[in-house]
Each structure stands twice: as C-alpha cells, then as structure tokens.
C-alpha cells in the first residue's frame, strides 16, 4: 500500500473548483460507482476534503470501503491529476466546514445550482498517491 505523500504545488490550481472533479468508489459487494463532485479542497500537505452533499451511494461506499480515486483538472493547462485517497473522517462544523460551505455556495451560484448544493459534511481523506495522468499531449 502506498504511504501518505505530500501534494505537489503544481496540483493546487486543480483544487480550486474551476472544473468539476470525478470520484470512483467501490462498495463492499464489489460494485464500482463513479460520479462528479463540485470541488476537492486542499486541507494540508497530506489531506484533501470532499464535500458531502447528496451523492449518497458514494458516501455509503466510502463508509464501507475507504479507498477512492479522484480526478481533478488544472484549468490553467488542462493537466489531469489522479489522486488515490483513503477516507479518514467527516467534519460537520468548524473552520474547514465553514470554508467549504462558503466555496460550495460560490460554485453553486456560478453554475446555476444555488439552493441545490447543500453541504452536510466535509469528508477528509488521506492522500496515498498523486500523479499527473499521461492522458494528454504536452
């Protein structure tokens, strides 16, 4: 298993929510699930947070099986990053939750989803691996 690693500075523009992220989870019965998330937030060098809103299958899967893969895109150069994460905890109050709530509402307003996005919790994940996907022409 990969150990906790630090997020490179190069990935930070991809964690600003300009382009929606994609998350893949897996239930304990083995069924994969893929969906979109509004933003992946940088918490510290080794952790990111995902907004817990209404994608309940993703939440159920993560509570059963903590391993997920997330794709984020840098809006400056369109580079694609893949993060292998492990669910750690959910925060339902405090500075991280409040910061995510404000940013989520901003994203909702910009995308015509105001009043639909509702933050229930900030799911914090440990970063197990991070790589730039070799999917694009340089």
């Amino acid at each position: 298993m990969a150990g906790t690693i630090a997020l490179p500075q190069e990935i930070m523009p991809a964690l600003q929510g300009a382009v929606p992220a994609t998350i893949v989870t897996c239930a304990l019965d083995g069924e994969p699930n893929v969906t979109t998330v509004s933003q992946v937030f940088s918490v510290d060098q080794n952790h990111v947070a995902l907004s817990f809103q209404f994608f309940s299958k993703t939440i159920r899967n993560v509570r059963e099986n903590p391993y997920v893969m997330v794709q984020v895109i840098n809006p400056m150069d369109f580079s694609t990053w893949l993060l292998e994460l492990r669910y750690d905890r959910t925060e339902t109050e405090g500075p991280l939750f409040d910061d995510m709530d404000i940013k989520l509402e901003a994203i909702a307003s910009m995308t015509g989803m105001s009043g639909i996005f509702k933050l229930r919790g900030a799911d914090v994940y440990e970063v197990l691996s991070v790589k730039k996907a070799p999917w694009r022409r340089d």
């Binding site: 897996c26 083995g30 994969p32 997920v68 893969m69 794709q71």
Partner: peptide, 9 residues
C-alpha cells in the same frame, strides 16, 4: 475496480 476493491478512474 481491482481484486482488492481499489477503484480506478
């Protein structure tokens, strides 16, 4: 997902 239930995207 792989045999150990690790997802891939």
């Amino acid at each position: 997902r792989d045999a150990t239930l690790r997802p891939a995207m």
